[in-house]
Each structure stands twice: as structure tokens, then as C-alpha cells.
């Protein structure tokens, strides 16, 4: 399993109990000298999963690289809410160029670092590129695939909230079936986003046979930190795809962000695993899979499935997709495992 054993002195929390642990056992966030990569004061919505995911991911990357880190950011929520100049929330050198080129900009940064190091003009600085699902799975996909294929020394982090939330919640190729967005309205015979479309980029990243691919959610922040730390210990192209619930786009309460992420994992809707060179190496197992209805019902983007007469067939199709994930990624813990 991916996680180191942690003793919890206070059940149900990660950070408070952490601070009672020896420093080397603490999570990055529980470290008294934590880097706070993304400062408070940014303009993200209350309960933003992306802000949470980005802070943990980049803090872990800063920690793993002794703060020798540069970030390239795609256009999107994270870019807009983190740099309302003259304020910026970033503690690291950070560049935003365009919506669709974060991976390529990061390649350029990595190339420059390599040459400067060769010439004795710079140290061992590392690069992360980050973007939302629109900037990653759609408009930035060409540059992403190119960066993977060349095995450039870049960690690309996708914060997946299942749509173009920054432009007002439109469908992306990561929007799940049946979900309501501004361009897949709950109208007509098949309300919401259609089935049998979309793509799961972690699997495509694996097909490039790059050294490291992982998925994570903001419900398992230790796991996220562990994966980012591991990724920064590897050279070459790496990809981490983080599920980050969006209260605005999903129609969920801002205090339910972590709960929604946990339900996505516990239902099998979002498989959490890590892969090396195209092969799955470990998964976060589901002890007892929950029915997808528990994940769908609290979200207003699925409200049309739970009207006077629930859309039983549609919910069954979503359940089948979750079941398929559980089979495909062997997510269900066998007895004795946990």
C-alpha cells in the first residue's frame, strides 16, 4: 500500500493528530515550517477543491525539492483566483502563458534549467505544470501528450472538477455522463451529459509508458502528498490527476467538498491508483463499495435524476460504470486487506 502507517491520536483528523507525531512522521501540512505555496487571500470560492488540492500538491512538491520549484499554470480558475495582481498567492516562481500550453511551457522551463545547470549557472530546479480538466484533457491535450512522449522532466498536475467552471460550468471531456452543465442541460430524452463520451486521461498517460502516473482526491490528502513527493523523486514525465469537487459547478455545499471526493472514491466513480511505466502498481482500496446514488444525490448537477420519478435506468448505467472501475482497477479490498 502507498501509505506509511500513521498513528492517529485524534480519530478522524489528519493534521491535529499529526502534530503530536515525530517531525519526520508528520504530513507536509502539519509541518510547523510548512511552505504555504498558495497563500491565503486568494479569490477561490468557499470550499474550492482545486485550491485545497493545489496547496497540498505544491506544498509537497516544494518540500520534496527543497523549494527549488517553478510552476507553469494553464488559464483557468486556479490561474485567475491565485494572481489578482497586485496580489499573488504564489510563493514560488510562477508563469501563466495560455490555456492550452502549460505542458509545453514547462518543457521549455525544464530545458532552460538543464542547460543552465550544465553551464554551472543554476542549481537543480524542478518544474510542475498545472491546469484544470479543460486545460488538460481538451485544449492542452496536444502539448500534454508531446511532453509525455518526449519524457520531459515535468510533473503535470490536473485538477479535475469535471468541467469548465471558470467560464461558467460548461462541459469538458472530463464531464461525467448525465451531469448537468451549461452546455449539457437536463433537457430532452437524455438529460445532462451524454453517455459513451469523454476520456480518462490517466489511462492515456499510462499508454505513453511514462515513469509515473497517479490519481488522487482531496479526500485523502496524505495520499496526495505521498504521491506528489514520490513523483518529485522521479525524473522524466509524470502525471497526477486529482479529483477536486467544485461546489459551484456540482451544486454541492461548500462544507461537503471533502465528503464528495470521498464518495467519488468509495463508490468507484473515481479510481485512485498509481502506475509506473504503464502498469498499475497500487490502488486505494474500497472497503465496502457504496451505491453511486449516495454520491449523485447531494449534487444539484444530477438533480434531474432524482425527480418525482427517479431515473432508475440512468442511475443503473452510472452504477455499471463505477462497477467497471472497481473490476478494472481491482479496487475492492479482499477480506483481511484494508
Amino acid at each position: 500500500m502507498s501509505l506509511q502507517p500513521v498513528k492517529f491520536y485524534q480519530t478522524g483528523t489528519f493534521t491535529v493528530g499529526n502534530r503530536l507525531l515525530a517531525p519526520e512522521e508528520r504530513s507536509v501540512q502539519a509541518n510547523m515550517q510548512r511552505t504555504s505555496s498558495l497563500n491565503s487571500g486568494h479569490r477561490a470560492c468557499q470550499g474550492c477543491g482545486e485550491a485545497l488540492g493545489a496547496r497540498y500538491a505544491i506544498d509537497a512538491a516544494m518540500n520534496a525539492t527543497n523549494r527549488q520549484l517553478i510552476a507553469a499554470n494553464a488559464t483557468g480558475c486556479l490561474e485567475v483566483f491565485s494572481t489578482p495582481y497586485p496580489e499573488t498567492s504564489w510563493q514560488i516562481p510562477w508563469i501563466h502563458s495560455l490555456f492550452g500550453n502549460a505542458a509545453a511551457v514547462a518543457t521549455g522551463i525544464a530545458a532552460a534549467i538543464k542547460v543552465k545547470k550544465q553551464k554551472g549557472q543554476g542549481g537543480d530546479v524542478r518544474v510542475v505544470a498545472q491546469g484544470g480538466d479543460g486545460g488538460t484533457t481538451d485544449i492542452g491535450f496536444g502539448c500534454l501528450s508531446g511532453m509525455f512522449e518526449r519524457n520531459d522532466d515535468v510533473l503535470y498536475i490536473c485538477y479535475d472538477n469535471g468541467g469548465y467552471m471558470n467560464t461558467g460550468v460548461q462541459r469538458s471531456s472530463a464531464t461525467p455522463p448525465a451531469a448537468r452543465t451549461a452546455t449539457t442541460m437536463p433537457l430532452g430524452p437524455e438529460p445532462g451529459n451524454v453517455f459513451d463520451q469523454g476520456k480518462f486521461v490517466p489511462a492515456i498517460a499510462m499508454a505513453h509508458e511514462i515513469p509515473y502516473v497517479a490519481t488522487a482526491t482531496v479526500a485523502d490528502l496524505r495520499d496526495l502528498e505521498y504521491k506528489v513527493t514520490k513523483a518529485m523523486g522521479i525524473r522524466g514525465a509524470r502525471y497526477i490527476h486529482i479529483l477536486v469537487p467544485c461546489p459551484l459547478g456540482w451544486g454541492t455545499a461548500s462544507h461537503d467538498t471533502i465528503r464528495m471526493a470521498r464518495l467519488a472514491k468509495e463508490t468507484g466513480i473515481f479510481p485512485v491508483f498509481e502506475a509506473e511505466y504503464g502498469e498499475v502498481k497500487s490502488v486505494l482500496a474500497i472497503r465496502r463499495p457504496l451505491p453511486v446514488e449516495e454520491y449523485l444525490r447531494p449534487q444539484k448537477r444530477y438533480a434531474h435524476l432524482f425527480g418525482k420519478s427517479p431515473a432508475v435506468a440512468t442511475i443503473a448505467r452510472i452504477q455499471a460504470l463505477a462497477d467497471k472501475n472497481i473490476r478494472k482497477y481491482r479496487l475492492q479490498a479482499r477480506q483481511g486487506e484494508h
Binding site: I95, G100, A104, T107, G108, A111, C143, G146, R150
Partner: peptide, 23 residues
């Protein structure tokens, strides 16, 4: 560093990254 990129859009984007890093 000589980089064979996947498109001209990537060529200029890589150039943006490397130039901004002082190369």
C-alpha cells in the same frame, strides 16, 4: 537543448518557457 516538439504551437510555447527561465 534541441527539442523536437509536436506542433508549432508547442514550439512557441516551449520557447516561452525557456526564454522566461533565462535561456
Amino acid at each position: 537543448e534541441f527539442i523536437n516538439v509536436e506542433s508549432e504551437f508547442a514550439a512557441m510555447s516551449v520557447a516561452i518557457g525557456s526564454s522566461a527561465t533565462g535561456a
